[in-house]
Nucleic acid binder design. Structure first.
Lengths: 339, 339
DNA sequence: ATGAAAGCGCTAACAC
DNA sequence: GTGTTAGCGCTTTCAT
């Protein structure tokens, strides 16, 4: 470690100044072809690797993206991260990852500081909007020294956002149930302090309304995304809505519990009760019966986020600030036996 | 950005030299109490944050861990990452994350270089051993300038490894089936070029052998971890082993397909066929019927990895190299209705 | 207890 | 084309 090879070692060995080596490293045109050859040969022979840290310091940029996430143990966030990692690698950016201890973490200042301090060129806030976890945005974002992009949150002025169109996905799901002949479509929501849950619930309501469903009081119950909560919510819902003939469940994890309980109660699916989930997890096709679901492409979400943040970084460097935009990805309905 | 506040700004404002500010930052004892107060006040007032990059450069350490992973879109790797993130945060380390394009990525030199170049203090190789993806280890690890720890791979001399005891977990699962009265226990394996798959298969075989199971040719079929492959493998296995009365499936994703197909064929579970999975995913309790499974605590795996690598980093700094060790975590059998 | 000088490894600005 | 001189923002000697 003492003998870490530096640009000076290469310069000495090649008999040039370190400036020339630097030029070679950065592919500058103004180096004699044979000098370049010699330097490259020495670099190769010595196994020299330029220090990214020193570079970050002088260039004031690191080719590193700060990623803030939460709930990695769930499948959604890690799918998104997968897409982010993929695109970042492609565009030559490294990833500095921070996971919030909870979705509702309030104290984000130290997180931001830690990223800024490490010279990230941009930040992707990949935490779903829930409760008050966006309260900081108004004050803080303004004076951030680097661009930031938000995933999965409601549109807000002056912010760049990428999200899935949950409203439209939920509406599709519900319309599908109605087309299948369901007249009484219940809904199991996610936690209602989550933006996504509210959007999905609104989509379900909108579809019922448009279809002019007679039942003047549609019924729903609230879960918290977990299978366990889905089971409880479904029991509740069945009690208040015994003649329900279809149910739109806000995620696949909760939907799997619905299937289990339906079996326990000898409800036939889809004859007695049609079920549609949301997310499109890979296992859904192998539930019993195979689950109809609204599939969202979270990897694509992550990829787009990287693409956007990089273009924000580039344009800020060129002093032409880019207009904030909101991008909405369309989910897709996958029909299977459960409906 | 021009006016990023530096240590010099603080020094000037406080009327001291930057060394004194540096001392305050690093909690050195040799600063007059009132000078310290004054400096701290200025730091606060100016909102100064020391540059982690500049620090990394001079101290030759970054308090950053390089994490290499693969298959983030699957639940296992992200659970592990969750544990890593949790413990790293606790110990004050940031995470530089790289995801390999595939489990079998051969060309790891650029990955390692990229991490070293960014001054990571240590590396956690969180990619499961599969195929030839450990071939590089022999040559490369020796001359790495930083400590490295491997997750989920076979023991190897001179390497520090943390893994789950797959053999023992599989054996437990199989013994459980035998105790339940199964005489003909089949197995659906993961891809057999994976170390974990081979270990689980070996555990299953060992249990059958110990139980003195009459059937001289136990039967198995190979899957690739996905639900889809599990379905195909189960069909194959049923054909060659029609009187099978129990099946140990190498992961829960494939087990869910086994349940589906069993229902399609009107096999009663567990009466006609008892099923045990592996992994302990949260949804398993809500399959139909609820799935017995071997639960592995991957978050704990991640946490331990961080703890170990940090202690390797610390001891290397103190010039006392630590002995490589292998740590095996015991999984846990969770019995439910499917057996 | 505090400051001056040197240096971490590199790039930018300006010579020549 | 290539070298020299300054930094980037911090820590580390070594003085005082």
């Amino acid at each position: 470690m003492k003998n870490r090879i530096t640009i000076v070692d290469v310069a000495d060995e090649a008999g040039v100044s370190k400036q020339t080596v630097s030029r070679v490293l950065n592919n500058r045109p103004d180096v004699a072809i044979e000098t370049r050859q010699r330097v490259l040969e020495v670099i190769e022979r010595l196994g020299y690797k330029p220090s990214a840290v020193a570079r970050s310091l002088t260039r004031q940029r690191s080719f590193t993206l700060g990623i803030v996430t939460a709930g990695l143990k769930y499948i959604g966030p890690s799918q998104t991260l997968n897409g982010i990692a993929d695109k970042a690698e492609e565009l030559g950016y490294a990833l500095l990852l921070t996971e919030l201890p909870s979705f509702e973490t309030k104290d984000i200042q130290p997180i931001i500081d830690s990223l800024i301090t490490r010279q990230v060129d941009g930040i992707i806030w990949a935490v779903q909007e829930a409760g008050e976890n966006r309260a900081w945005v108004e004050d803080q974002v303004i004076n951030l020294p680097v661009p930031i992009i938000f995933l999965t949150m409601a549109e807000r002025e002056n912010l760049t956002i990428v999200a899935v169109d949950n409203f439209s996905g939920a509406k599709m799901a519900t319309q599908h149930l109605i087309e299948r002949g369901c007249r009484k479509v219940g809904h199991i929501t996610g936690p209602l302090d989550w933006w996504e849950s509210r959007q999905r619930k609104a989509g379900w309501e909108a579809a019922l309304k448009e279809a002019g469903c007679k039942n003047s009081y549609p019924h729903w119950a609230e879960g918290n995304w977990s299978s366990r909560s889905g089971a409880a919510a479904f029991e509740t819902l069945l009690n208040k809505y015994p003649d329900m003939d279809g149910v739109f469940v806000a995620n696949d994890q909760m939907a799997v519990s619905v299937l289990q309980i339906a079996h326990q109660r000898n409800l036939r699916i889809p004859q007695d009760l049609a079920v549609v989930g949301f997310d499109g997890i890979a296992e859904a096709a192998y539930f019993w019966p195979a689950l109809t679901t609204v599939s969202q492409n979270l990897q694509e979400l992550g990829r787009i986020a990287v693409k956007e943040i990089v273009s924000m970084i580039d344009s800020r460097r060129e002093e032409r600030e880019i207009e904030p935009i909101s991008i909405l990805l369309q989910p897709e309905l996958i029909v299977r036996q459960s409906s």
